[in-house]
Design a protein around this nucleic acid. Structure first.
Length: 496
RNA sequence: GCGCUCUUAGUAUAGUGGUAAGAAUCUCGGGUUUCCAACCCGAGGACCCGGGUUCAAUUCCCGGAGGGCGCACCA
């Protein structure tokens, strides 16, 4: 079969080899915006997550897990109830849906539409006899389109599935403050599902209605944001930064500059925020993305979320979907804790600076990863077709199988037995080994190449004589002979 | 959500108003095989869902679901 280096080949690989399936449930025709991971995809995701958990521990982060459903008051306080509900109107004739605020701004450019209530917007429509541009039907009433999924809990109590994990982390603030013994910044992350009722989910797992988030939070004082010890260690690191002023000039090539320079040129405001940019970059780099597919893109002031004072997206350049945001870094200020303090009647003020008399509400810096987007972009970046051979160049630590073991031929009992023994020994060392004896040896190598397995071990006739095996490298296809009793040790050494 | 378009084994496809929907790859069993998708034998597996037209629908028509593209949307 001819293997072509095309995006279609990649898309079918995702399904064939059990990375991503869907939309789920496939046997019932599918439900847009919902996908499943197969064994290979899940192994990859878990490997990324274990790596991240190890790294975050080293960077001083603790992990929490909160419920995915929260009562209405939480989302009132967070601002999501207000901001995640869009005013829309539907043409009764042709059923086209319009975003009311944008429609009004276009048709009544002299008026200030931002901030008007639903009733005020409805009045404007009636007064101006606005009609559907497609079929000239008059508009009637405004409906709500709620980007949050609503549900009922217990005796008809309204609740919402969380549209982000971050808010649920903030609700723990006074617990965390005690737990951390008031040492700032408090570094916490949460991994889990979030839900958004996207109008039209597309682009596979890049815009799902149920998706994973991995969100890191720094609770930090105003003084510490500007004088941040850990910034000193990273200030010379160079990052590809595309600030919004560059974008305004239609420049889309990022400047590769050090964080210190970015701070001096006022591209970023706070050292602690610069540290967050670095941390986001570091965690993405260790997954093995090539340098030139990564950039940071700053949000323009009107693109920012309701809670953000500054926001940069870490984006990956993909073949299929161009630049894709896989991580967002937000300066959320004291917005969240202020609001939750007000709504819950709690006092979240703490002594955080050098003045022992001055209490303040902590600032929050957030680094939000979309693990599903990481998995997709990582797979796409790893996908290669080399001389008709699919080679998924995943970093060895992340590959679903670390090693595969084959008997050179399957009809020689002693070769088979030795191969199975080698495989079993690897498993006993808790190395994820895969045993395969079906088909020709070449076919077995290719199967593993498609899964990104970095090493293949083959037991041949020589193995029977001198207890050695061949170790084949995925990328070079070169083989070396090694002693059987050194296999596990060597694999571990090559991987870590 | 609107418009256009598409939907056949796991994957990528051929084809048809009427016997057994065809080949590839794939999977399983067997044979062969001293290192990169080799070969031989045998087997398995599909017309997205619902309704209509018709003696007969996978095929034509309508609706739905899902995918792609464009528009809108994307904290």
């Amino acid at each position: 079969m001819e293997i072509e280096d095309k995006i279609e080949t990649f898309n079918s690989l995702l399904r064939r080899r059990g990375f991503i399936w869907g939309p789920s449930p496939e046997i019932y025709g599918g439900f847009a915006g919902f996908y499943s991971y197969g064994p290979a995809g899940m192994a990859l995701k878990n490997n990324v997550l274990s790596l991240y958990r190890r790294e975050l521990r080293a960077f001083g982060f603790g992990e929490v897990e909160c419920p995915t459903i929260m009562p209405e008051i939480v989302w009132k306080a967070s601002g999501h109830l207000e901001r995640f509900i869009d005013p829309v109107m539907r043409c009764e004739e042709c059923n086209t849906l319009y975003r009311v605020d944008q429609f009004l701004q276009e048709n009544l450019p002299d008026l200030m539409i931002d901030g008007l209530s639903f009733e005020q917007m409805e009045d404007l429509i009636k007064k101006n006899n606005l009609q559907c541009p497609k079929c000239d039907t008059l508009f009637k009433e405004i409906e709500e389109y709620n980007l949050m999924l609503k549900t009922q809990v217990g005796n008809n109590v309204t609740a919402y599935l969380r549209p982000e994990t971050a808010t649920t982390t903030y609700l723990l603030f006074n617990r965390l403050d005690q737990d951390a013994r008031r040492q700032y910044p408090i570094k916490i992350f949460q991994y889990g599902k979030a839900y958004r009722n996207e109008i039209s989910p597309r682009q596979q797992v890049l815009r799902m209605r149920a998706f994973d988030q991995l969100e890191l939070q720094l609770f930090i004082g105003r003084e510490q944001e500007m004088d941040f010890e850990e910034f000193e260690n990273v200030k010379n690191k160079k990052l590809p930064l595309l600030d919004w002023k560059l974008q305004e000039q239609n420049i889309n090539k990022p400047s590769i500059i050090s964080l210190e320079q970015a701070l001096n040129e006022k591209i970023i405001k706070k050292p602690a925020y610069g540290y967050c940019l670095y941390l986001g970059y570091y965690l993405i780099k260790i997954l093995g993305y090539p340098e030139d597919v990564i950039r940071f893109r700053q949000h323009s002031p009107n693109e920012r979320a309701h809670y953000a004072d500054d926001a940069w997206d870490l984006e990956i350049n993909t073949k299929q979907f161009n630049w894709v945001e896989i991580c967002g870094i937000h300066d959320r200020t004291d917005y969240d804790l202020k609001r939750h303090g007000d709504f819950s009647k709690q006092n979240f003020e703490a002594f955080m600076g050098s003045d022992p008399k001055l209490k303040e509400i902590p600032q929050i810096l957030e680094i939000a990863f979309g693990p599903d987007r990481i998995i997709y972009t990582l797979l796409e970046a790893a996908f290669n077709v080399e001389d008709g051979r699919i080679n998924l160049k995943l970093p060895p630590t992340l590959a679903p199988n670390t090693v595969a073991v084959f008997p050179l031929v399957r009809n020689k009992e002693n070769i088979r037995n030795l191969a199975m023994k080698v495989h079993k020994n690897l498993l006993e060392s808790r190395i994820s080994s895969f045993y395969d004896e079906s088909g020709s040896i070449g076919k077995r190598y290719r199967r593993q190449d498609e899964l990104g397995t970095p090493f293949c071990i083959t037991i041949d006739y020589e193995s029977l004589e001198n207890n050695t095996v061949t170790l084949r490298d995925r990328d070079t296809m070169d083989q070396i002979r090694i002693k059987i009793h050194e296999v596990s040790e060597l694999i571990i050494k090559k991987i870590f």
